[in-house]
Amino acid sequence: MKYWNNRPTMPSMSSYLIENMLLNYYQNSTSASQFVDIELPGSFLYIRDNIYSYVPDPKEIQGNINTLTLDEKSKIWDRANLDYNRSLDARSLEKQGKHKESINKWGEIFGSEFPTYG
């Protein structure tokens, strides 16, 4: 998720913010898979649905650590929504046995440095 966050497709969140958003997501989750591709749709969805929310500092020093501007939040929401849908498509393609198409879909999310099928 940090790699996704640092791609030049949207404004970046601070590492502390994205880490804590994901920690919050998993604190409220009943399980987690060992397979990253299974976890990514939920992570994108959580970021999308919570990017406008108050994110408390777990150290209780800073209060709300989500200091992004409204424009930054909007662009992150758009990207998380797009990549949430792409990740669902990638998972669906994999389930259909279309591995090359699935990997290409993940490449749309993670960019040209993502491994290609081969």
Rank of each mutant, 00 (worst) to 15 (best):
R7F: 04
S74W: 02
M1H: 14
K100S: 14
H99D: 10
L23G: 05
F44T: 09
D83S: 06
E39A: 09
Q62S: 13
S87V: 01
Y25L: 14
V55F: 02
Q62H: 08
I38G: 05
Q62M: 10
E94A: 09
P41L: 09
T67E: 15
K75S: 02
L70F: 02
Y16W: 09
N64V: 04
R79K: 15
D49Y: 01
A32L: 11
L22N: 06
N28T: 12
S102C: 04
Y16C: 11
Y52I: 08
K75D: 10
N81W: 07
S29G: 07
P41W: 04
N81T: 06
I76L: 02
M10P: 04
Q62D: 15
G97Q: 12
Q62C: 01
V36I: 15
T69F: 07
I61Q: 14
I65T: 12
W77A: 05
Y84C: 11
T69R: 00
T116Q: 12
Q62Y: 10
A90H: 01
E39I: 06
R86I: 06
E101Q: 09
G107R: 05
Y26E: 14
P8C: 05
T30F: 14
L23Q: 09
S14C: 03
S53G: 09
D57F: 08
E108W: 02
I109K: 06
D37H: 13
L45A: 13
E101D: 10
L45R: 13
K75C: 00
S53A: 13
S112I: 02
Y54T: 01
F114R: 00
G42M: 11
S74G: 04
G118E: 14
E113D: 14
L40N: 04
I38Y: 13
G97F: 05
I38N: 11
I109H: 03
A32G: 07
W77P: 01
T9C: 02
D57Y: 05
Y117V: 10
R91Q: 08
Y26C: 07
Q96K: 09
